[in-house]
């Protein structure tokens, strides 16, 4: 069923809940290959919950559940026989706060996912670790200190380490949940630059509170409000000519 044409990610009527709270309401969305899609909207609008449904991380929260269909490369990740562990190897994630694995070195942080996925040949692991660190623009800064703890890096470096860790297992889709909200402007610019480069190889869905960021880096933008997808369009169209009144009010700063 894997196809290389057509949307890489299709969301059909997705509903997500925390207990009785209805956090994501009937969302439909299509993402094409090598696109960067931004999700914007006020705090609590369900955008983080939404992307956490795309790699089945939402269900790890006690009392959380969701329903609907999410197709990655044509395959429903919520199909009865779909294994969340396999799904998550196809859909990587970078989190809001940098979260390197404690106690592991820079090298081990990147290599761990490979090793646990069964890639153990040392030369291959070393090669992929270097590739990942280069891709995340961290290599030059850490190549002489690969055995230092991941946590000894600065916040911005840690976030790029987390990106490298995600890239190493080569997922076709990468989710980012406000990856720069804990970073300084220079580190933020680096991450943004990386996202635009990575587009050649992967598809990125990124949650952001920063509308300038969304307009700088994304091809399409989705506006969420109260758990609903209000508008989804080309980024330039959404920011210059929003069709929905709520979108217009939000991007012009009238609420949120």
């Amino acid at each position: 069923m894997t196809s290389s044409t057509g949307p890489i990610l299709t969301v059909e009527n997705l509903n997500a809940y925390f207990g009785d709270f209805h956090a994501v309401k009937g969302v439909n969305l299509e993402v094409q290959r090598n696109e960067v899609v931004s999700l914007i909207g006020p705090s609590g609008c369900g955008k983080s919950t939404f992307i956490r449904c795309l790699n089945r991380l939402h269900e790890e929260v006690p009392s959380a559940n969701c329903e609907g269909r999410v197709l990655i490369e044509g395959q429903n990740i919520y199909a009865e026989n779909a294994d969340p562990v396999v799904v998550r190897r196809k859909v990587g994630m970078v989190f809001q706060k940098p979260n390197p694995f404690p106690g592991l070195s820079i090298f081990e942080n990147v290599a761990l996912g490979l090793k646990l996925a069964g890639i153990t040949k040392k030369s291959v692991v070393t090669e992929i670790v270097e590739w990942s660190l280069r891709k995340s623009a961290l290599w030059d800064e850490v190549k002489d200190s690969l055995s230092s703890p991941g946590l000894s890096l600065s916040g911005g470096q840690q976030q790029r380490l987390c990106l490298a860790r995600t890239l190493a297992v080569k997922p076709p889709v990468i989710l980012m949940d406000e990856p720069t909200s804990a970073l300084d402007p220079i580190s933020t610019a680096k991450i943004e630059e990386l996202v635009m480069e990575l587009k050649q190889e992967v598809t990125v869905v990124i949650v952001t509170h920063n509308m300038q960021q969304a307009s700088r880096i994304s091809d399409k933008t989705a506006f969420f409000l109260m758990g609903e997808l209000m508008e989804f369009d080309e980024t330039s169209a959404l920011f210059t000519n929003p069709k929905n009144l709520k979108t217009e009010q939000y991007i012009t700063g009238r609420f949120g």
């Binding site: 991380l57 190897r89 761990l112 996925a117």
Partner: peptide
Amino acid sequence: SVREAGLALGLPRWKVILRILVPGC
């Protein structure tokens, strides 16, 4: 967030525990 990072990497929970959490503490 460390548990979620491990899960998001496609590791089963028991590997997250034994290879990331236990060595980490």
